[in-house]
Design a protein around this nucleic acid. Structure first.
Lengths: 333, 333
DNA sequence: GTGAAAGCGCTAACAC
DNA sequence: GTGTTAGCGCTTTCAC
């Protein structure tokens, strides 16, 4: 049904090698006339090269898999866009898969990517314990894997992240300098390294500034919009006083903000809402939210660099890149 | 890097055919012990079959491409969901591509699907003239192609659609029976057969019921939410009286409705809003909208049946299936 | 500059 | 029940 190079070769009385060379575009090993002739004939016959065969032969699919926990937060979609922008000119396609913050989805979609023989996988894990054997096996087989943002300790594999602890510390101090004393923390789940880092920063900042740690101000209902709303509602309904909310992510911040505004609070005059992170392109976060920026573009750049290096030089040593968060407060307008 | 059947064969002192047979699961040509042994070894060695090679060898990718104009209207997403539900159990994957109602996108994404050697394509075209040569070439090469919903006349290829004319007629008569006399029509673009059919039904119903056709009531600003809003706004601002709006699709209906409600009109008491189609699963359409249902499920069923038949029996004759719309009015609650 | 031959990883006759 | 062989469509030495 499909035309092959053999059909073209036959039609022209050439060998399939010559046709292949002419079609591959690299001149030097085929005369200009032959090349033109072949290309014209191919066009006329409606030839489409069979990528399957090419990939099998070259043992390379020219596709990178990207596995992320979610796409509601602007961080991951921005990351993907940046990564694609770098990969595309280099001839790489990209497949995006989701874990939906679930370890079983993650496992199954990781398999899916590996089944389709991607040349490498960029992953931001949803759990820093769950699927490690799977990753180790992958790494041992020398298949390029790079973790970004949500990385895993102790894996012999390159990774890129930003310094969550420092950024959280910075943001917390900003709130404290603004006079906030009772800062609630809408934390992330324990099984993500980033949450732990941010929580630690929360504790440490309070301690540094002589503010007592009150466990009733730390809530872990969920990292989405509903979670943020629920948590703030809980604080209000139980009469737990607070003058600031320090959120794990922007979705929580939006949820929190919605509830507060509806209850008649002014932001940030009455209660400040601070979020890690509204990325630089986020249009979701309300301008009244205070946030530190995550350096998405640079993270994507590094992640892509690392995966490509791993593809080109499979035995190069693992590299752990930490990109500093941009310590810029974006405040209410 | 990846384990192959040859690695397993070597490790076990078997031939790769035996390993292949054992792994393919069909017993009868391989002894139970060998089978178990092979499967265990494969598991232990971390074997993953190379789909690329399988597809090349079998000359079949077990994937169906679905090319649709958009995904905002519930029809196409529902169609896709139904199609996938039927195809998956049969071992078929599915790739979805969008034309964004643009002929160049459509062309390029059609190529993309064909490049990835899908076994067949289900398409709902964005223009019934533009890319016909491309489709003809495809059909001539005997690659399975089935049009659904937005079909093209005169193509030697199976198609599925519902009877838009009848459905539109039914819906129009419903409005007329309800006493509407000045019915505005938010039409679809001329280059879609369905639009033409619906417009014809609009004309014919008016004529049948002795209502004069007023061209100023027919608007073609766009088939999205903004289009519907713009068109209704236009009528209102230009003082063109109307007591009903007959929309090409549900997005227009939503846009129209929003404007009308904001201006203080009651729906449907003051102005009725009727739409083709809010599909049976649509959660988008406001309950105040009157609509006829498009039989998505049955259309998907037929489209899948036709494409699979074309795959299994490439030379079977083209079939034109018309599935009657469900003449049920879903009215304001 | 061109052709012959090998092979990517797998399946499917065909022998035995 | 298992092995041998051929080949899916392509690229890539290696000769000439």
């Amino acid at each position: 049904m499909y035309v092959t190079i053999i059909d073209i070769a036959k039609a022209l009385g050439l060998s399939k090698s010559t046709v292949s060379r002419a079609l591959s575009g690299e001149k030097g090993n085929v005369s200009p006339e032959t090349a033109r002739l072949v290309i014209e004939t191919a066009e006329r016959m409606g030839y489409k090269r069979n990528e399957l065969a090419v990939h099998l032969r070259k043992r390379k699919t020219m596709t990178i898999g990207i596995l992320v926990p979610e796409l509601v937060t602007s961080f991951y979609s921005t990351f993907i866009a940046h990564a694609q922008q770098i990969l595309r000119p280099k001839g790489y396609r990209t497949i995006v898969a989701l874990s939906n913050e679930d370890i079983f989805w993650e496992k199954s979609n990781f398999d899916l990517l590996s089944d389709s023989r991607v040349d490498g996988i960029l992953i931001s894990t949803c759990n820093d314990k769950a699927n490690v054997e799977q990753y180790s096996a992958f790494i041992q087989r020398n298949i390029p894997l790079v973790f970004f943002d949500r990385t895993i300790k102790g894996l012999d594999c390159s990774s890129v992240r930003s310094n969550d602890y420092k950024a959280a510390f910075f943001l917390m101090e900003h709130l404290i300098y603004k006079g906030r004393k009772r800062i609630a923390h809408l934390a992330g789940p324990d099984h993500i390294r980033n949450s732990a880092d941010r929580f630690q920063a929360y504790i440490d900042t309070l301690s540094k500034h002589g503010i007592a740690y009150d466990p009733s101000l730390v809530l872990k209902e969920g990292t989405d919009r509903a979670g943020g709303a629920t948590e703030v509602t809980f604080l209000l309904e139980h009469g737990i006083p607070f003058d600031a909310v320090f959120c794990f992510n922007e979705m929580q911040a939006i949820g929190a903000e919605e509830v507060l505004l509806r209850k008649g609070f002014r932001i940030p005059e009455d209660i400040a809402v601070a979020s890690m992170y509204g990325t630089e392109v986020s249009t979701l976060v309300h301008p009244a939210v205070t946030s530190v920026e995550k350096p998405v573009a640079r993270m994507a750049e590094e992640a892509v660099r690392l995966i490509l290096r791993q593809i080109d030089a499979p035995l190069s040593p693992a590299e752990e890149v930490i990109i500093p968060s941009e310590m810029v407060i974006r405040e209410s307008s």
